[in-house]
Nucleic acid binder design. Structure first.
Lengths: 209, 209
DNA sequence: GCCGTGATGTCAGTTCGTGACATCACCATA
DNA sequence: TATGGTGATGTCACGAACTGACATCACGGC
């Protein structure tokens, strides 16, 4: 038989998420995580650069975003490309909604983890910007569009996490990206009388896709 | 005479920036910083929460942003308010351009510091979003506008730092925010025919305000 | 049956960051 | 002038985060 139980990495991820949930991030030591995963502390650091990284490693997202951006229809405006890419990426979250929510709860409770999350998001933004430049956008426009996309994603994701009605992430994305287009119009449209996410969600304004 | 040399905090900031510049962030120990500032390591931690924070404490920015947002003319579109606020904030950087550049060089060389920088920027974004909500915007629009504003600021700031011609930050901000307006404006006249930063910077396109 | 490889264990050490307590110039006030 | 409180700093001890170096030994190829 094999010398060690298989999937040490998976066990570490699971143990870490559990312990961070149970007793908080700071109150959890790497030694504890390792013990629960039945490996040594040193092994933890062979799989993850530090105590935070264990929550941020599974990330198919960058690939999905880059691919969707590269393969979007040619004549689309930058923000349309972004909309397409983010919509393509939504299932990555929807498929693991349970896990994602638990993870996010932990992150929300610890500034250090939020810091790391922002770094990951910024990294994603760079990937997106690269992909946009591949499409022929100049560097500044690409960086800007990617930044806007990430800002919109952040808001939509947050709304999705907190949504008591569990509407799909794609829907929150659509509404948020739509709201982006009204930021330049004077006051009246962006007042509270036109909520971004109307009560009746079953008839979203079709963005023409 | 006094028991200790005055301005321990200032000496620590100076020593830290010097050492981080000279030998890198990771290669510098807090003990070294403290020694150069002629205090003990413990005193360092009385002034700064951790080794990174010493680079991020001076921040009049939040106040300026919040104030400028609150006092902007009433009927402005969200993005115009942001434009106003960021423009008001520009002098905070221009006035210490030398220091800001040195600091930024250190940050650019160390992911851990970039992480902290992103966190500070996000915090600033929240402040801005709060101020926008004070103006009557709904939470989602406010968060979105603030996020986009921060994204634009990030790009403009980066361009300013790298600008060999040393154009004022305010100018980069104007151009970047202009590009943002084009990207987010509903009609699809947002093509490449409007370059973000034209060769001749002395005749910026007037945004009609 | 031998050998290289890779994942893990073991151990020692450095640095970060914190709690507890000591010191003593300075200041207010009697 | 004497007294006592305050606040910034020093001193010490310590746990926990990370890292480098070397040991182990199942497995897979040859």
């Amino acid at each position: 038989m094999s010398r060690w139980k298989p999937d040490a990495r998976g066990r570490l991820e699971k143990a870490a998420l559990e312990l961070y949930s149970e007793k908080g991030f700071e109150a959890t030591t790497v030694a504890e995580i390792a013990a629960r995963a039945e490996v040594t502390e040193r092994t933890f650091y062979r799989h993850f650069a530090d105590k935070r990284e264990v929550l941020f490693q599974r990330n198919a997202l960058a690939d999905v975003l880059a691919h969707a951006t590269a393969t979007a229809a040619a004549p689309l405006a930058p923000l349309e490309v972004i909309t397409h890419a983010l919509t393509e990426a939504a299932p990555v979250f929807e498929e693991r909604a349970e896990l994602v929510r638990q993870r996010q709860a932990v992150i929300a409770a610890h500034p250090e983890l939020q810091e790391r999350e922002l770094a990951k998001l910024a990294c994603l933004g760079s990937t997106l910007a690269d992909a946009l430049r591949e499409r022929g956008l100049d560097a500044t426009t690409a960086a800007l569009a990617a930044g806007i996309g990430m800002a919109a994603f952040k808001v939509a994701f947050e709304r999705w996490i907190d949504d008591p009605d569990q509407h799909p992430l794609a829907q929150h994305l659509r509404h948020t990206l739509d709201a982006t287009r009204h930021l330049t119009t004077a006051d009246d449209a962006s007042r509270t009388d036109v909520p971004v996410l109307p009560r009746a969600l079953d008839t979203p304004p079709s963005p023409g896709g």
